[in-house]
Design a protein around this nucleic acid. Structure first.
Length: 860
RNA sequence: GGGGACAUGGCGGAACUGGUAGACGCAAGCGACUUAAAAUCGCUCGGGCUUCGCCCGUCCGGGUUCGAUUCCCGGUGUCCCCACCA
């Protein structure tokens, strides 16, 4: 009996898979396909436990689907452009390209050590010119289609990273990477018209039934579609310059028009700016409004302030009714029309404002059951349903009917129209960075902005960029940008902006279908492989990456380059890997490996191994460098092997929840690995047996089939932790039927059980499974073996143990054949002496028999 | 302020669609083996009691049901997303 040695066993099987080219994805017409993809990593240089978990999860699916007979595509690549490389360049004087490719080499080696069922022949990095050149090609297609445009716009400028950020990349007024407070700047920017697809992006969410509801809700909120009315107020008296058409406002509550109290414009509304030029006091007020911070706390506490412009507008339904025009700090210029009409009775912000400035508050929606004479609004606006009153021709209608009526009247008057407004903005894709995909256009003094012909692609980055200082290395390169105009042949300058790295990751899944194709996307290959059947990644990409990828898929489908309109049919968002954090009295964080934990009863203490100094046990948090609560995967692989690490990270918690890393946990997995090997190793080599009838052999066989059923269902439904628990039970059961001294029937039953066991564990612990498979004489590689089938008749006991309740409390149990009819079961129960003893002195009112489950006797 | 998710032993978690709550693992305790330790193996392990059995127990309070961790109503707490979005 040989002790299991992962250091020898694991590399051996990885080599065997590679030699047999087992995981190469091959399109096989007539075979169902399955595309499993985990979000590709940024090549930071080191594998962390989050990667181990993410890629192990996908690997379970990939290996399982292969065993079920699918043609599986499970590729790997690198999201390789981006700021960390430039920062490394600046800090350490290294070349970003060399730094990135070195990181890729190191991480590829580590990932390969995980034993993943990946087709490595399809690997690429987004910084490969072969990849971003193709990206430039479809960018030009979108350009031609009018989906790319340039506009002078106020942008979010990150002063630390020296670049523009998309709205999605600004969190609480800070850059999502640098954490620096974002400034507003006016720049000429490149945009993609994602808003053209806003409706489809919302509507198609409901077709994504294998996406988490949470992610769909987040995207829906992000796009923020609202239906309402855009219309113009006519000024009473002479309109200000440029406002001959009146003052346009947007509302989602046209039903409350008769409750109007005032009209408000944003401080940066053109009308406000015009008034500010004429009146320094207005200018001062606007300047005051701009001061306020954008942080959550500041918005929460910011008081509503306003400025009465003295201007008046006419109510659209009653020209004699004049409303004052205010400038108000709570109105946002970049939503709707940047101006509103306020109905304080039914909008909290309007009410706060109206109370402060003593403006009228007139209720027009009567809550159900309220008396129209008595209903009044205090300090809380009523936003619920009700009947319209105080509103002329809208009186008596419900809210929805009144909205429709008001919109119809305004449209008939030619003053406005019902419209849809989105929170979603177009996607600003330009970045003033050198380490990215160049935008393939030139600026010609004569012809303006000229898109390059595809024959001029790829526009490759120069190799000698200077990343020694902040800013755009591409723009300051001495020669790169100088070129000729493809239209007139005159001198021209290349665009020095590069594309947001989210562009790189918005189509990589399509490139994987055929990484050698001349065109960006091979139609034939994507028609076979897409959509991705199972996409796996972190919830942090719920909006940004997943929304952009959906948009690009739709845009490319409209260019005829793809047939699917949704890239990811199934999405799974996995939890993070967490660990306790530890810090010294001095406040300094220390790594788990430096800490020793002792337990006294229920209290745990930690101290430094080196000095014995006590350390404080902190919260369980996401593993991060700053808290130093990380555990290096390679150290775990070194001690326990890859399989034990995979097994623990998969078994600890359900995949969608956080997994709490612990040394004792991985030790438990390691114990299991060894016990499994010991069990297989104890089976005689000629263990076929005769399969004859024997009660013990039959029992084991039933357990085998039941386990196959349970593990299959667990894998299918992403409950890997439960599936692994079934394998632990299976092993415990096997040990009750040891090979030593067993009769041939039991040995035969064991052989069947072990054969199933090896195949069931293969997705989780692939190396161990191969070793065990070979040990029991399995044919070829277990990676190529079919998934075990179960016999439904055998997957359950012939005789069921049914608990018997009296008035809902368990009072005993009876045995009945599986599938026994309720009447027969009732007879068995009422004949049972123990049960009848329990029922002494009681009258049976009712007997409820749930087939194969439970019996409940209602008695009094 | 709006939207969403979650709450089960000392811990991670299990319980299919309303049917034996606590599977499996971790930690802990006891024992075997050992000169000893580690490893390994076996047993115990929600709380309480008058312990062949009984009572309580899935965040709290109600409800529906023969039966509720599961469904409904109302709270509390934790986490996530969005946010002066008209």
């Amino acid at each position: 009996m040989a002790r299991y040695n992962p250091k020898e066993v694991e590399p051996k099987w990885r080599a065997a898979w590679a030699d047999a080219d087992v995981f190469r994805a091959t399109a096989e017409p007539g075979k169902p396909k399955y595309y499993v993809l985990e979000m590709f990593p940024y090549p930071s240089g080191r594998l962390h436990m989050g990667h181990v978990r993410n890629y192990s999860l996908g690997d379970v699916i990939a290996r399982y689907k292969r065993a079920r007979g699918f043609a599986v595509l499970h590729p790997m690549g690198w999201d390789a452009f981006g700021l960390p490389a430039e920062n490394a360049a600046m800090e350490r004087g290294v070349d970003p390209k060399a730094w990135t490719y070195e990181n890729i080499d190191r991480m590829r080696a580590e990932l390969k050590e995980l034993g993943l069922a990946i087709d490595w022949s399809r690997e690429f990095a987004t910084c490969d010119v072969e990849y971003y050149g193709k990206q430039q090609a479809w960018f030009l297609d979108l350009f031609k289609a009018g989906l790319v445009y340039r506009k002078e716009s106020v942008v979010n400028w990150d002063p630390v990273d020296q670049t523009v950020l998309a709205n999605e990349q600004v969190e609480d007024g800070r850059g999502w990477r640098s954490g620096a407070i974002v400034e507003k700047r006016k720049l000429n920017q490149w945009f993609l018209r994602i808003t053209d697809y806003a409706d489809e992006l919302v509507d198609a969410l409901k077709t994504l039934d294998r996406w988490p509801d949470k992610v769909r809700t987040m995207q829906e909120n992000w796009i923020g579609r609202s239906k309402g009315l855009k219309f113009s107020f006519e000024f009473a008296g002479a309109p200000p310059a440029g406002f001959d058409g009146g003052l346009e406002v947007y509302t989602t509550r046209p039903d409350t028009l008769f409750g109007a109290s005032f009209v408000g414009v944003a401080p940066d509304h053109p009308l406000a700016e015009q008034l500010a030029q004429a009146d320094p006091k207005v200018a001062a007020f606007i300047a005051e409004c701009r001061k306020g911070g954008t942080s959550e706390a500041e918005i929460e506490t910011a008081e509503k302030v306003g400025w009465d412009t003295g201007l008046k507008v006419k109510h659209p339904f009653d020209p004699a009714w004049e409303l004052p025009v205010w400038i108000a700090n709570f109105i946002l210029m970049d939503y709707g029309a940047g101006a509103i009409f306020a109905c304080p009775a039914h909008d909290q912000r309007d009410l706060d404002f109206a109370r402060k400035y003593r403006l009228p508050v007139k209720p027009v929606v009567l809550p159900p059951g309220e008396d129209p004479g008595a209903f009044d609004v205090g300090d809380e606006a009523y936003t619920g349903p009700g009947t319209i009153f105080n509103s002329a021709f809208l009186d008596g209608k419900d809210v929805e009917a009144a909205k429709a009526e008001a919109i119809a009247r305004i449209e008939a008057m030619g003053r406005g129209e019902g419209t849809t407004v989105y929170r979603l903005r177009d996607w600003g894709v330009a970045r003033q960075r050198g380490w990215g995909c160049p935008v393939p256009v030139v600026h010609c003094a004569k012809c303006g902005v000229v898109a390059l012909p595809k024959s001029a692609l790829p526009v490759a980055l120069p190799d000698d960029l200077d990343f020694g200082k902040p800013g755009n290395a591409l723009a300051r390169h001495p020669t790169w940008k100088h070129t000729t105009c493809p239209d007139c042949g005159g001198p021209a300058e290349r665009e020095t902006d590069t594309l947001d790295t989210f562009v790189d990751s918005s189509w990589y899944f399509a490139r994987f279908a055929d990484t050698g194709a001349d065109e960006a996307i091979s139609k034939e290959a994507v028609d076979y492989w897409l959509p991705v059947d199972q996409y796996i990644g972190g919830i942090e990409h719920a909006v940004l990456h997943l929304l952009y990828a959906r948009f690009v898929t739709k845009a490319l489908a409209d260019q005829g380059q793809l047939s699917v309109r949704e890239p990811f049919a199934g999405l799974f968002t996995q939890g993070m890997v967490t660990h306790e954090s530890y810090r010294r009295q001095s406040g300094e964080w220390v790594e788990p490996r430096e800490v020793e934990i002792t337990t006294e009863g229920k209290t745990r203490r930690a101290r430094l191994i080196s000095t014995g100094e006590p350390v404080v046990i902190g919260d369980v948090e996401k593993m991060s460098k700053s808290k130093r609560n990380t555990v290096a995967p390679e150290e775990i692989f070194d001690v326990y092997g890859v399989d034990a690490a995979r097994l623990f990270v998969l078994s600890d918690s359900p995949p969608e929840r956080d997994a709490h890393w612990s040394t004792s946990g991985v030790e438990g997995a390691w114990r299991f690995v060894n016990r499994v090997w010991a069990e297989f190793d104890s089976q005689p080599a000629s263990g076929e047996g005769d399969g004859g009838s024997d009660p013990a052999a039959d029992e084991l066989r039933v357990f085998t089939h039941r386990t196959v059923k349970a593990v299959t269902e667990a894998v299918e439904s992403f409950r890997f932790n439960s599936g692994i628990a079934r394998l632990y039970e299976f092993l415990n059961k096997l040990k009750e039927y040891p090979a030593a001294g067993a009769n041939p029937a039991v040995l035969g039953s064991r052989q069947e059980a072990l054969s199933a066991f090896a195949r069931l564990m293969a997705p989780f612990t692939p190396h161990l499974a191969e070793e065990c498979w070979t040990r029991i004489g399995g044919e070829g590689l277990v990676a190529n073996a079919p998934w075990p089938e179960f016999d439904p008749a055998l997957a359950q006991d012939a005789v069921k143990v049914l608990p018997v309740q009296v008035n809902g409390k368990r009072r005993g149990e009876v045995r009945a054949p599986a599938g026994a009819e309720p009447a027969d079961v009732e007879k068995i129960v009422l004949d049972d002496p123990e049960i009848t003893r329990r029922l002494e002195g009681l009258t049976i009112r009712k007997v409820i028999v749930v087939k194969d489950r439970i019996v409940n006797i209602v008695a009094a």
